[in-house]
Design a protein around this nucleic acid. Structure first.
Lengths: 177, 177
DNA sequence: CGGCTCATGTAAAGAGTTACATGATTTG
DNA sequence: CAAATCATGTAACTCTTTACATGAGCCG
């Protein structure tokens, strides 16, 4: 049921079509916080419209419909945000994997951990660029900037963890021989 | 489809009943990486048994059945682990919320951020205890220790992020007045 | 004008949650 | 012996994905 709040939040930032929302879900939010496909987004936009939380603010070629948040929609979103983050469903493939690689044999585990470190370093670079780009404009930090900065903090932590784990694992390998 | 690997991974650490697995899902893995309810766990155990990836290693009172991983199950798990973390479905309520609180008005946002900082500090304490407990035994680090250490790293990062965001937000509030 | 991107939808299948349901054993 | 915990299951519903489906506009 959080998909509706994700949509409200994205639309509050900026009115958009279902198509554009699908793309945004394929990037930032979708890759890190909450993924969704267009086949879920379109019907949800319909529902939100029926409930008066969003509305069509512009129509264009090819059946294009740009949605924006209504006043009731803003109120609903605010209330949800003030309730604090939902507990409930968690789905984090990276973390699940981390939970389980401890059981690989030492060499496999070491290789896996190196992959984590590399990936974290990569993501760190990517996000630093994103953040710099978002922050460059001066004045107000745009919505995504907080999330980007959060990503930077967590990937840095992930990298440090990987380095620690590699050390641990290497130690274990040495002892095993 | 990752539920089966979560189960294989937990059972490889230690044979368990569906009931015990349900409880483990309610804690570590379930709270941070992949949640599941008993109504999903029991049918999945049945399927895994039919496929020969796990087996009943002990039966007890009250229809109790302790499952363990078979050789094919171990192989399947290893292959999956070596493929690296799945891309795909992500569900992270905390992050979704962080993505969206930027749009709250300044005072609300500040209050929300303070809540994040507090919660991170709390979790940090909890996990530090868990880790110390797991590491105290000396010798091999048990499976959960890597995950716990990862948690410590990420919650510390979350706390630092929250502090940074609070500063940003406070700055924004000052300017707004 | 052919291929790509924009743009929207629906149907069927699969995954996951909530609610309903039952009963044995242990603990106080 | 009552209440809590252990232990398992199923049914109905909701959410999500995959696959199917269509067509308009843009670019070279």
């Amino acid at each position: 049921m959080s998909i509706r709040y994700a949509l409200l939040g994205l639309l509050r930032d900026q009115p958009a079509t279902g198509y554009e929302l699908t793309q945004r879900f394929a990037q930032g939010i979708g890759r890190h916080a909450w993924s969704a496909k267009h086949s879920q987004i379109y019907p949800e936009l319909r529902k939100l419209t029926d409930e008066g939380l969003i509305e069509v603010v512009e129509e264009g070629a090819r059946g294009k419909r740009v949605y924006g948040v209504t006043e009731p929609g803003r109120a609903e979103l605010r209330e949800w945000l003030l309730r604090g983050p939902d507990e409930g469903t968690v789905r984090n493939p990276l973390l699940l994997w981390m939970f389980l690689i401890g059981g690989l044999d030492p060499d496999d585990a070491l290789r896996a951990l190196r992959a984590v470190e590399e990936r974290a370093t990569e993501m760190l670079g990517e996000l630093t660029e994103t953040y710099d780009f978002l922050a460059a404009e001066g004045g107000e930090l745009p919505a995504g900037a907080y999330a980007a900065q959060f990503g930077i903090h967590t990937y840095r932590a992930t990298r440090e963890w990987a380095r620690w784990a590699i050390e641990e694992q290497a130690e274990r390998n040495r002892r095993a021989r």
